[in-house]
Simulated assay, not measured.
Amino acid sequence: MLEHEYTHLGGISRLNVGRCLGIISAAASAGIVFVLLWSVNLAQSMGLPVNLPPSLLSLVGAGVVFSVLAWLLNRHAWRWRIMQYVLQVPDLSGDWICTGRTIGTNLNSEYDWKGAVTIVQSWDKIRIRLKTDTSASNSKSAALVKDEADGWRVFYSYSNEPRIGETDLNVHKGFAEILFDKNLKAGNGEYFNGHGRYTFGTMKLEKIDNG
């Protein structure tokens, strides 16, 4: 699993979200236990031989409820429109067409290139993968910043590895900044390579509608 944590600036603190989940879990657990005990008492008052094993109560403890809610939030609920409004976390996951241009310098000629970007994202982790005909890269760290005027900015570092047979290319590290529009359908960015390949350029992303 190559997903990694990312910094989120401009939304609700994850610490505060954890506190809210703790309060909700405690209240939900107490409510469930109350309903179970009330149901047992009602059944017994009707002469039914009903017993409530302690192990059942442990399954609805605050810790278990918190774990379930945290998993639901991290994997699914954060994508819901109302939760995105509250949490202020953009859903960038999916497949993107990438069109790039390497800027020419004294050491490198200018050229255009194309690739495919796949973003895997949950509420607390992300992975940005770019594949071209000659190499592939994976993000190592990332930060999301809300831009009130234009959309969302994503800053990330990555490691790039050439495909087998690309003897003219070297393993290298780099950094990219992408500004996604408010509709999260397109993005414009810049990249800078170093530690093995000293190039820089621009790239444009367009979301692929899968359906």
Score class of each variant (00 low, 15 high):
59 L>D: 01
199 T>V: 15
40 V>P: 03
24 I>A: 01
100 G>E: 09
83 M>S: 09
24 I>F: 00
80 W>F: 14
194 G>N: 15
41 N>E: 11
186 A>V: 08
83 M>L: 14
199 T>A: 08
95 D>Q: 11
145 V>W: 08
21 L>E: 03
55 S>P: 00
176 A>K: 02
142 A>C: 12
204 K>H: 09
133 D>L: 14
199 T>N: 09
110 E>Y: 05
88 Q>K: 15
15 L>N: 06
76 H>L: 13
15 L>P: 00
52 L>G: 00
147 D>G: 04
149 A>P: 04
107 L>A: 13
132 T>S: 15
171 V>W: 01
85 Y>H: 11
189 G>K: 00
190 E>N: 08
88 Q>Y: 04
185 K>I: 06
197 R>K: 14
184 L>C: 05
152 W>N: 07
137 S>Y: 05
118 T>F: 08
104 G>Q: 06
117 V>L: 11
26 A>F: 13
102 T>L: 14
115 G>D: 03
82 I>L: 10
180 F>K: 01
52 L>C: 01
30 A>V: 10
100 G>V: 10
122 S>P: 03
178 I>F: 08
10 G>F: 14
21 L>D: 02
134 T>K: 12
69 L>P: 01
19 R>A: 12
6 Y>E: 09
125 K>C: 11
159 S>F: 12
144 L>K: 06
189 G>A: 01
90 P>V: 10
209 D>C: 05
31 G>P: 11
136 A>I: 12
116 A>T: 15
124 D>P: 00
35 V>F: 14
119 I>Q: 03
122 S>W: 03
205 L>I: 07
67 S>N: 04
178 I>P: 02
112 D>R: 15
40 V>T: 09
196 G>S: 03
111 Y>F: 15
34 F>A: 10
69 L>I: 08
148 E>D: 15
109 S>L: 10
39 S>I: 03
207 K>C: 07
135 S>Q: 15
147 D>C: 10
207 K>W: 07
198 Y>R: 10
63 G>N: 05
192 F>D: 08
49 P>F: 03
185 K>S: 10
39 S>T: 13
132 T>G: 12
149 A>F: 13
33 V>G: 04
80 W>G: 07
137 S>W: 05
71 W>R: 13
191 Y>P: 06
61 G>Q: 05
61 G>S: 15
81 R>C: 01
171 V>D: 04
32 I>L: 15
131 K>D: 15
14 R>D: 13
41 N>F: 06
201 G>D: 00
17 V>R: 09
61 G>D: 07
173 K>A: 13
7 T>D: 14
190 E>H: 07
197 R>G: 07
211 G>H: 11
63 G>S: 06
55 S>I: 13
189 G>I: 02
58 S>L: 15
132 T>L: 10
198 Y>H: 11
55 S>G: 03
